[in-house]
Design a protein around this nucleic acid. Structure first.
Lengths: 109, 109
DNA sequence: AACAAGTACTAAACATTGCAAGGTACCTAT
DNA sequence: ATAGGTACCTTGCAATGTTTAGTACTTGTT
């Protein structure tokens, strides 16, 4: 998968997956990778960034399957940011699709 | 518009707009900016890159409205690359939309 | 007990690419 | 001549995903 496509959109994906329940990093890597592969080295710096920017708070929980998991919980600011990002994504992807249509369909203006 | 969303996707937009007819840089800036704003400083380096990579050949044509225009014409390699990029874009954007749905709809797995 | 494999997190160096800012130059109209 | 629109180019910067390497915990196997 084209690496560059993911730039910025990963932020949206990570945030949106924590809307309904708190998640930990490793879980997010696997969840997102069901749709398109991402590396662990991408997620952890991103999570740190989003936490530093006030979109997440974190807490540790022990696990029976390995070392403790660091859970990420959305803040109000994070929820607001998601809405902005989703709207921007819709505008953007619609724009791209329009250009593709314009470029591949019979007539153009 | 989120800058990061554009990473990589601009390549697709530029290529696809030259499928049906050759275009010049300034024209591409305006055409793409109808959907989402992009800067001239983005397009010209991108066009040089794509030409260097063998996706475009170029030629100059005089204009009555200003200095000569450098037209970009797709090569066979460029046409092949577009098909790949469009497929990747479809897979990617579908994946993102699925994650958004999964994150915003009632139940999830 | 030793080892491998899966889980889980972290860090540093790197590559790619879009933007801002600045510049050159042509043409038309005032 | 001066301004504004057209058209191109370059440099330095910022943002972010990948690669690679490493730490450490748990469970199952030999």
């Amino acid at each position: 998968m084209n690496v560059q496509f993911k730039k910025g959109v990963l932020t949206l994906c990570v945030l949106v997956l924590t809307l309904k329940k708190d998640r930990y990093g490793y879980e997010l890597v696997n969840k997102i990778s069901e749709q398109f592969l991402i590396a662990e080295g991408t997620i952890y710096p991103l999570l740190r960034r989003l936490t530093k920017d006030g979109y997440f708070t974190t807490y540790l929980l022990e696990s029976q399957e390995g070392p403790p998991r660091k859970y990420y919980q959305l803040t109000e600011s994070g929820k607001t940011y998601i809405e902005v990002l989703i709207k921007e994504w819709e505008l953007f992807s619609t724009g791209v699709n329009r250009l593709i249509e314009e470029g591949t369909k019979s007539d153009e203006g």
